[in-house]
Design a protein around this nucleic acid. Structure first.
Length: 440
RNA sequence: CGGGGCGUAGCGCAGUCUGGUAGCGCACCUGGUUUGGGACCAGGGGGUCGGUGGUUCGAAUCCACUCGCCCCGACCA
């Protein structure tokens, strides 16, 4: 993409309403613009980042055997009256009427809808287990939206729903999501710690939140210091028994504030740290809470009707964008992990109008584009400083810098946004030498 | 919802107390000089001062109502 043609409205000054660094940088780097309180437009590079995160989530969820679907954003209130949550959910749910005065709502979550899909289409235990997920927009009319997309009212969420024949099977489904979540956050470059959590209005008996430690996090958490440096196993077989792998994480003390009691801290105070964190994922097991009232029964092995055990599993995809920025920034701007970066390479021409430079940069742009690298090419007639600072602000992981001096000596410069290291890359074999540092 | 604050050009702000031709910086447009870390000179465009109603010869400024946004507290991915 040529920057001269790209819609990336960057801001030199700090928007006064943005109080935390991720919100500020998302506005300044042109990822988002606010539409209303807690509701945002996602501009091109913000959209690109959402897509990159989504595809990692998708890959990892698919590999557990979960299947992607899309459910409606606007739901009929009927199902919620059946489950009893139409009254329970409160003003956080956006209620609307259609032209026939029917009660509708903008979905804050999808347990009812997915259970309805299940009961209308699944008849036998033989079809279990099944896990259906989607990635799309939800609306919760938060009392106080704040911090940009960190706590917006409309947000992009991955929500998965599992159905199992037995409690043990349901635990396996839960464990699969538990491990899958660790892998997702790891791939996104985040250290997310699973913690015992309150299940809130979703309900249920077993629940973990996945917390990214951050000073600006809104959740108060308590956990064993050892968890901070714990790494996940690189390989996983989802068909094997995952209980040991999960226990290996849950054996440590780690709770969110509402599950914390001071007695806990007395017992093991020396190992427990208290900190702020960002909740990026939340998983629940809740058994028959929805399958029963919605009468989603199927035939069991003995021919009798049984209700499936259910769980649901959420990841705040749009919130992750903010969480990643909170964890990866400096005074100059965002520092994207390569895997989520809107562009992997920024191509900077230091002298637009110089024939030799123009020719080389243009041909290089074509070349690396065709090799599959995602490139943001700053072809604007701006001064070098402007180009550098925009690239730094946007946070492109690698900058290729080309000017007359380098060309004369047969090199271009490759700069790492993260480490600030400069590498000299020979012009006569650009593709090979680039590959040393950056993969497409 | 309680408490606090703010709406003036795309962004950041002054002007409001004490009514009298709507300003500044950045950004934007044109021309010129520049060009390896946010250049300089000259010229230029852009505003129903959040909205409605009122007071007044006259309202960004005073009054009433209203809408929106932000911050602090109790809810959540």
């Amino acid at each position: 993409m040529r920057l001269s043609r790209a819609f990336i409205p960057t801001l030199k000054e700090n928007p006064v309403d943005a109080k935390i660094v991720s919100h500020r940088l998302m506005l300044r780097a042109g990822l988002i613009r606010q539409h209303a309180a807690g509701i945002y437009n996602w501009l091109p590079i913000g959209t690109e980042v959402l897509k990159n995160i989504s595809s990692i989530v998708r890959e990892e969820q698919d590999s557990t055997g979960a299947q992607e679907i899309i459910m409606p954003t606007v739901q009929s209130a009927e199902l919620w009256k059946e489950s009893g949550r139409y009254n329970d959910y409160g003003p956080e749910m956006l209620r609307i009427q259609d032209r026939q005065d029917r009660d509708m709502l903008y979905g804050p979550t999808h347990e009812e809808v997915v259970t309805d899909i299940f009961r209308n289409n699944i008849r036998s235990y033989k079809d279990l287990p099944i896990n259906l997920y989607q990635i799309h927009w939800k609306f919760r009319d938060e009392i106080r939206p704040r911090f940009g997309v960190m706590r917006g009212r409309e947000f992009l969420m991955k929500d998965a729903y599992s159905f199992d024949l037995t409690y043990d099977d349901a635990c396996h489904s839960y464990n699969k999501m538990f491990i899958s979540y660790l892998r997702i956050f790891k791939r996104l470059g985040l250290k997310a710690i699973p913690m015992i959590a309150d299940s809130g209005p979703i309900g249920g008996s077993l629940s973990h939140e996945f917390i990214v430690m951050a000073a600006t996090g809104e959740s108060k958490v308590y956990c064993d210091r050892e968890l901070l440096s714990k790494e996940i196993e690189p390989h996983i077989d989802y068909d094997s028994n995952l209980q040991d792998a999960v226990d290996d994480w849950t054996k440590y003390y780690a709770v969110t504030e509402d599950k914390y009691s001071s007695e806990d801290s007395n017992i093991k105070s020396k190992d427990i740290i208290s900190a702020n964190g960002i909740e990026v994922g939340h998983i629940f097991h809740f058994g028959h809470k929805y399958s029963k009232p919605l009468n989603a029964s199927i035939k069991g092995t003995n021919g009798k009707d049984i209700f499936p055990f259910m769980g649901s599993y959420g990841i705040g995809v749009s919130r992750l964008v903010a969480a990643i920025i909170e964890a990866n920034n400096d005074e100059k701007g965002i520092i994207w992990p390569e895997i989520v970066a809107p562009y992997k390479i920024g191509l900077i021409s230091l002298k637009v109008g110089d024939l030799e430079v123009d020719n080389l940069v243009e041909s290089l742009y074509q070349k690396i584009n065709s090799k599959g690298y995602s490139v943001l090419y700053d072809d604007r007639e701006e001064r070098a400083g402007v180009k550098f600072s925009d690239m730094d602000l946007i946070g492109i992981p690698w900058q290729i810098i080309i000017g007359p001096k380098g060309i004369k000596e047969g090199y271009l410069e490759l700069k790492s946004r993260k480490t600030n290291q400069l590498f000299q890359v020979r012009l006569d074999n650009i593709e090979q030498s680039l590959l040393q540092y950056v993969s497409p």
